[in-house]
Design a protein around this nucleic acid. Structure first.
Lengths: 225, 225
DNA sequence: ACCTGAACACCGTTCAAGT
DNA sequence: ACCTGAACACCGTTCAAGT
């Protein structure tokens, strides 16, 4: 492994920047995974000394948030435009957010926790509900309900796909293979549905929850399609 | 700080156990937080050498999962019993799970990711849907949809409350205070709802999403109340 | 002013040594 | 067999030294 080898060719003055460092950090995660995101690895990627990063970021957390913000801007920049179908707008907005988390599964949890919302998507969602005829109070409440559902479900589902192989063996996910071996006496209902139960990573769970939620939102709307 | 001080009084043989170590680990987290959960801290709590834990757990991950399983058993043991109101059963089950995550917010994410389900709650949920008249395929699908929504929303919301103080300042949560200062020209809909928008940690978001989802589930049920 | 080198405190883990 | 002590590799961070 590459150590902090002394005597490296000195980098040119001002050849580093926040943008370069963030790009190197993303490359490290993409190639080696999030738990390999260290100052050492970023330094190797940049051919720079690990501690040179401290000139541009206060600490690792600040660098990490900058990386997350870069990814978010990439997914959302100029993404949504209103149509004359406010329900379709809500659904497309939900899928846009879901796709963003699934695109960067290693960051999904931290994105949901530390960048839980942004003005643009809230603005868009409230606008759609407003065109559905909702008053301000209901539109605000439903926008939050929808936003929290989408963000939570997407980030957890994405994170599930990013669990390291070594950890999966220790997890309950074996149940996907074994639940049919359960005693039908003590678990008659699971036995009853048999093979119909979707696996824990099956996207139909999320899609169904979104369908049911949107269905209620449409039913309550003064301006139904 | 207590170091690995040499010359500690030797612990009696077989005086350690998985149960004792797990209890000590929980005490450490409760008193000092999850990022202070180290072998050193657990050793201090037990008055034992940090590495003595390796005789009882393969590694830190195995200890951590054992701790999570202990907490889950505490919350769910003999928790739910069927009533003659299957819709109320679904709602109570959802609140039970939500309360479990909110009770242990520091563990919420890992509980949702590494112990995403258990037989008992799935069995109970399918049973309720079955009494609602659903066929096996629909009951299985809706049980998954409901389970994923509840688990995801509860774990993310709980984790939001457990973010360390030092990190919050760097987060977008400041928007709760500042979103009304947005330019009404570029964000007319946010300006329109004004103070009606619930904060990011407001429980009404989750409650509303659950209400809307359950409403649809009842509407589709062959046996409506 | 920006980058490098060395050092520090801390962490999980391994392994030989005690009893 | 179970607990202890010492050591190892690795990590984020600080700070003085180079240029």
């Amino acid at each position: 492994m590459a150590q902090t080898r002394t005597g490296r060719p000195r980098r040119a003055r001002d050849s580093l920047s926040r943008e370069l460092i963030v790009a190197a950090a993303e490359a490290v995660v993409q190639r080696q995974g999030l738990d390999r995101l260290t100052f050492q690895a970023i330094g190797d990627e940049l051919d720079a000394h690990p501690t040179s990063i401290y000139r541009h970021f206060r600490d690792k957390d600040e660098l990490f948030l900058a990386l997350i913000d870069t990814l978010r801007a990439r997914s959302y920049s100029g993404a949504m435009t209103e149509t004359d179908d406010w329900m379709a707008d809500l659904r497309n907005q939900a899928h846009l957010i879901h796709d963003h988390y699934m695109r960067y599964p290693e960051f999904a949890l931290q994105m949901a926790l530390r960048r839980p919302t942004d003005f643009m998507s809230v603005e868009f969602t409230i606008g759609a509900l407003r065109r559905g005829g909702y008053d301000a109070e209901s539109a605000a409440l439903y926008a939050r309900a929808l936003g929290q559902l989408v963000r939570s479900a997407a980030s957890i589902q994405a994170a599930l796909t990013a669990i390291p192989e070594e950890q999966r063996d220790a997890d309950d996910l074996t149940w996907e293979k074994d639940y049919r071996k359960l005693d039908p006496e003590s678990h008659p209902n699971i036995a009853w549905v048999g093979s119909h139960l979707p696996g824990i990573r099956d996207p139909r769970g999320w899609e169904t929850a979104l369908d049911l939620l949107l269905e209620s939102i449409e039913r309550h709307a003064p301006n139904r399609r």
